[in-house]
Structures are given as C-alpha cells and as structure tokens.
C-alpha cells in the first residue's frame, strides 16, 4: 500500500483540494497534508477508521459512498482519490463518473483480478481466489465487482475517460520485470490517474 502513495503524491499538486473516498485511517491524506499542504477530506463509514482520522487531524466525513455523492458540487476538488475500493462499490462505473464530476482529476487504485497468481488459483484449484490482497471468502467479501487491468482499460475507453498516467505494481520477481510487457498478467495493483476528456 505504501507504494501506492508515492505515485499518488507525485500527481497531487501542492496546496490543492483532495477528496479521498473510503479514506481508511487517513494515512494517505495525512501524508499529502504533510508533503503538499493539501486541504484534504476523507469519506469513511467504519467507526474505528473515522476515529483514527480524527486523532490524526485528518478531516473525515461519515458518509456511505453507495448512497451517492450528490452533496459535492461539480469540480469542487482538484483531485478525487479512491484506493482499493472501486471493486467494493455497488455501481463502480457510476462512482467513477461521480469522481470525474467532482474532481478535475482522479486517482484510482484497484487489485488486478487478471494477475497470474489469481488466475492460477482459480484455474488449478477451481475455487475463488483467496489471496493476501483479497483475503475474503466469496460469501463474505466486500469486493463484489472483480475486474482486471484490461477490463478497466476498456471501461475508460468506452466512457471516454482520459488516462493521464498508469502504474503497475508488482511485489515479486519475475512479475516486477514482466509487468510492463504483459501488464494484465503481472500487475497486482493498478494505479490510474484520470481526467475527463
């Protein structure tokens, strides 16, 4: 996760306004506050995470993303971020639209379900993958919309979303070497920097 932040931090302008959807304990916003002096807000529904944000001095709003984001005005943020949560949304494509409405730019990170180990798990064991990154059983997982790097590329094309940057993250050798050649197969976590065209 910490690797995600270094990319995101490069894409966020100093003193800008950042909204983090599903901000967890607020560590990304805290990092951006300290590095770039941003004005940040996180949305979160988990009480413990909310408390951690408050203790860290991170602005946090208790709000369920699945209930919509209509209380945020068009273009009211420089950057809207969502890390590792798009796959847990009821309507990921609509959330993406909302993010691009509210923010001039968006940063999305998600687990790539096309990663070869995930594929191998399903292929050879014949069961839904339970990995370190996706550590849930099929029946209790909050991740209800699995998708791959390639799926996301198609979605961006279909919805005319402009990809400013994309980064592929892999932890292990040889994935680290092969991810640029076959991103859909060797990327564990994909990081996208998007804008409206």
């Amino acid at each position: 996760m910490s690797q995600d932040y270094s990319f995101i931090s490069d894409w966020v302008a100093p003193n800008s306004k950042v909204l983090d959807l599903g901000c967890g304990d607020g560590s990304l916003l805290l990092n951006l506050q300290q590095r770039h002096n941003i004005l940040g807000y996180g949305l979160e529904i988990d009480p413990d995470s909310i408390n951690q944000c408050i203790r860290h001095g991170v602005n946090v709003i208790e709000q369920d993303l699945n209930q919509g984001l209509t209380n945020f005005a068009d273009g009211s943020f420089d950057t809207v971020v969502m890390t590792q949560a798009l796959q847990a949304m009821r309507y990921p494509h609509l959330v993406l639209d909302e993010m691009l409405r509210i923010g001039r730019e968006c940063v999305i990170t998600f687990p790539n379900f096309g990663y070869w180990r995930t594929r191998a798990y399903l292929n050879f064991r014949g069961r839904m993958p339970v990995t370190k990154q996706l550590a849930y059983q099929w029946y209790d997982t909050p991740n209800i919309h699995f998708f791959t790097y390639a799926d996301f590329e198609v979605l961006c094309r279909e919805r005319s979303i402009n990809v400013l940057h994309r980064h592929c993250i892999a932890e292990h050798f040889p994935d680290t070497q092969l991810k640029s050649l076959w991103p859909n197969l060797f990327t564990q976590t994909a990081v996208y920097h998007l804008s409206r065209q």
Partner: peptide, 19 residues
C-alpha cells in the same frame, strides 16, 4: 448536521462529521 457539514465543505473549511 449534514447540512452544516456540507456548507462547511463547500466553504472549504476544515470539518469532520460523525453520525
């Protein structure tokens, strides 16, 4: 309270909201 929070957000003030 959400109205208060939304107004503060739109005004760019530092705010946290808990329900």
């Amino acid at each position: 309270s959400r109205e208060i929070t939304d107004a503060l957000l739109a005004a760019g003030k530092s705010v946290s909201y808990v329900e």
